[in-house]
Simulated scan of single mutants.
Amino acid sequence: MGNVYVEEDVGLMDITTLGLGIGACSGVMEMRAKESLTLSGCAPVKEILQHLGLAFSFDVHEGEAVGAGERILQCIGNAKALHQAWKVSQNLLEHLSGVASYTKALVQEAKRGNADVEVVTTRKHFPGTKKMMLTAVLSGGASPHRLGLYDSVLVFAQHRVFLGDKEALARHFWELKQKFLEKKVAVEVENFQEALYFARIGADILQCEKMGEKELKRCVELKEKFPHVLISATGGINVNNAQATAACGVDLLVTSSPYFAKPKDVKVTMQPKEKR
């Protein structure tokens, strides 16, 4: 079975390497960080290198800090395999290390505002990248907010429109809690009045969507009357406002911003093995 990343890039053949007649030459490829970063992407890169039959060694591992100029990886093999591994491996390390590095910075900013706050990421990653993105997020010190529709209960306004008036809503809400007794039930709320209502009917988590600091603090104060309730802030959370939002006293910051982080630069060099 092939490797999807290699097959997408190589297609039928690498016509440059083939045309130059260098495919059988033995060579060494190294990847080094051009800037400081938190490393991610090791697992899919290892799969690529193993698929292509390259000998390789990582100098650093998933989630570790890498300084500018430090070597990440060395590969040895024929030029054909090295060139097939080059760009896809570099892309994965750069993009995923960007996510991990941004996540780490975001967590640090949040902890400056509230040492007890947890940063969690949404499922707003590009489809098909869940495993890699969540690995990068974990490497940066955050956690997944939801793995998917199957692992947690989160009631949105888009659900509530089908449930009728408040009496019907409360009945359906109770039935939901009863059906999934082991699950905490989260509800997205847009203002203090919605937060108060759902706290009263038994919500476990109030997910406060795009609230200003004043209203968010009012929602946090609900914990005095409803001590079982957790308060999460979501909508536009990023490295620039994480500290101030966390300082409002929320339990969780829910964010998608790491998925759109700028990639980190990784430098690739290659040379014939016999010249080393």
Score class of each variant (00 low, 15 high):
54 L>E: 03
34 K>Q: 13
33 A>Q: 03
165 D>C: 12
63 G>M: 01
213 E>F: 04
40 S>A: 10
177 K>G: 08
55 A>T: 09
6 V>M: 05
133 M>E: 04
176 L>D: 08
72 I>W: 00
47 E>D: 12
67 G>Q: 09
276 R>Q: 07
43 A>L: 09
146 R>L: 04
170 A>V: 14
86 W>I: 01
228 H>F: 13
232 S>T: 09
92 L>R: 02
25 C>D: 04
147 L>F: 09
75 C>E: 01
262 K>G: 07
222 L>C: 12
269 T>Q: 12
240 N>I: 12
241 N>M: 14
263 P>W: 06
26 S>W: 08
227 P>C: 10
17 T>E: 02
188 E>H: 12
149 L>S: 09
213 E>V: 06
263 P>H: 08
210 K>V: 06
202 G>F: 02
65 A>M: 12
33 A>S: 09
62 E>N: 07
16 T>E: 06
255 T>L: 09
181 L>F: 11
108 Q>S: 13
182 E>W: 13
145 H>Q: 05
192 F>E: 08
96 L>K: 01
41 G>F: 01
110 A>M: 10
30 E>Q: 12
268 V>C: 07
201 I>G: 04
27 G>N: 06
8 E>M: 12
88 V>N: 00
25 C>Y: 03
72 I>A: 00
191 N>A: 10
185 V>R: 08
43 A>S: 11
